[in-house]
C-alpha cells in the first residue's frame, strides 16, 4: 500500500479503536479511557500493520506475541482486539460485567488474544524475555512485543529484564513504553524521575527510538525500523502520548491516572470523535 494511503487506513483504525474504548467506558460508567485514547495510535499501527496474526486462531503458533504488561490498559487492548477481528464487536457491551471475557484488568485465561495476566506491574518484560528465548530455541521467527507504561519503569524487574534481553541478544523482542507521564500519585517524572529514559535503555544495550506516540507516521516508521533492524539486540520504542487524544475536552481535563467522565459526557465524546473523523481532523 502506498504510504499516504497506509497512514490514512491506520488512522481510521485508530479512530475505531478509540470509539470501541469509549463505548466500553460508557457501558461501565468508568474505565481507563484516557490511557486508551492515548495509546490507540500505537495499537492501530500494531494490529493493522506490524503484527502477524490470524484472527480466527488467536493461538496460531506463527503469531507475533503482544503482551499487555499494564493490565489496566485492557480497555485499549480489547478495542484493538475488536479492530483485529479477534473479539466480536458486540462483546464490548459486556466490558467489566460479571462473567464477561473482558474484565477491567487484562487476564490471559479470560480473553482470546490476551497473552498474559497483567496488572501486577513490571511483569510483562520478564515474561517477554522468556518467550523470546523460547521462540529462538524453537527457531520460530515471531516477534514478542511487550507493551508497558512509564510507571513500570519504577519496577526493578523491568531493569532485570532489560539487562537480560541485551545479554541474550534478543533481536526478536520489541518493547513499547507508553510515556503519558501519569501514574497513580501524579506525574510519573515527579513520582520517580525516569529521564533521560532513552539514554537509560541505550546504556542497557538496546536499540532505542523515541517518537510522538500520537503521530501515526512516526509510530509506523518506528515499528518498521524495529522489525527490520539487523542488529542482534532488543529494541525499544518509547512513545510520548497524550491521554485523551482525539477528544479535546478529555485532553485538557485535569490529568489524573483515572480520568473522570460524567454520564452525559460519553455521548459528547463519541460525537466529537465522529465529527473529527468526518472532517479528517482526528489526526
Amino acid at each position: 500500500m502506498e504510504r499516504t494511503a497506509l497512514i490514512k487506513s491506520i488512522s481510521q483504525a485508530a479512530y475505531r479503536i478509540r470509539r470501541y474504548a469509549l463505548r466500553m467506558g460508557e457501558v461501565q460508567g468508568q474505565g481507563y479511557v484516557g490511557q486508551a485514547l492515548g495509546l490507540a495510535d500505537m495499537l492501530a499501527v500494531a494490529y493493522t500493520h506490524a503484527l502477524n496474526y490470524q484472527p480466527q486462531d488467536p493461538e496460531w503458533e506463527g503469531r507475533d506475541r503482544f503482551l499487555l504488561s499494564h493490565g489496566h490498559f485492557a480497555i485499549a487492548h480489547y478495542a484493538a482486539l475488536i479492530e483485529a477481528g479477534i473479539i466480536p464487536q458486540d462483546e464490548l457491551e459486556t466490558y467489566g460485567s460479571d462473567d464477561s471475557r473482558l474484565p477491567m484488568s487484562g487476564m490471559a485465561s479470560y480473553t482470546p488474544g490476551m497473552e498474559m495476566s497483567g496488572g501486577s506491574l513490571g511483569q510483562g518484560l520478564v515474561i517477554a524475555v522468556g518467550m523470546a528465548l523460547g521462540l529462538r530455541l524453537k527457531k520460530n521467527p515471531a516477534f514478542v512485543y511487550n507493551s508497558m507504561s512509564d510507571g513500570e519503569l519504577d519496577e526493578g524487574s523491568t531493569w532485570e529484564a532489560a539487562m537480560s534481553a541485551a545479554h541474550h541478544g534478543l533481536a526478536n523482542l520489541i518493547c513499547l513504553v507508553d510515556i503519558n507521564n501519569q501514574q497513580a500519585d501524579g506525574n510519573s517524572n515527579k513520582i520517580l524521575g525516569f529521564e533521560p529514559i532513552a539514554d537509560k535503555w541505550q546504556a542497557f544495550g538496546w536499540h532505542v527510538q523515541r517518537v510522538n506516540g500520537n503521530d501515526i507516521e512516526a509510530v509506523l516508521n518506528a515499528f518498521d525500523i524495529a522489525r527490520k533492524l539487523p542488529d542482534a539486540k532488543p529494541r525499544v520504542i518509547i512513545l510520548d502520548t497524550l491521554m485523551g487524544t482525539g477528544v479535546p475536552f478529555l485532553e485538557t481535563r485535569d490529568k489524573n491516572h483515572f480520568i473522570r467522565v460524567d454520564a452525559a459526557e460519553w455521548q459528547q465524546a463519541l460525537a466529537i470523535l465522529d465529527a473529527s473523523q468526518t472532517t479528517g481532523a482526528a489526526q
Binding site: V126, I127, V129, G130, L133, G134, K138, S157, A161
Partner: peptide
C-alpha cells in the same frame, strides 16, 4: 524475579 517471569514465558512457548 526475572528467573520466575522468564520461566513462565518459556512455559508459554
Amino acid at each position: 524475579q526475572l528467573l520466575m517471569g522468564a520461566a513462565g514465558g518459556m512455559a508459554k512457548e
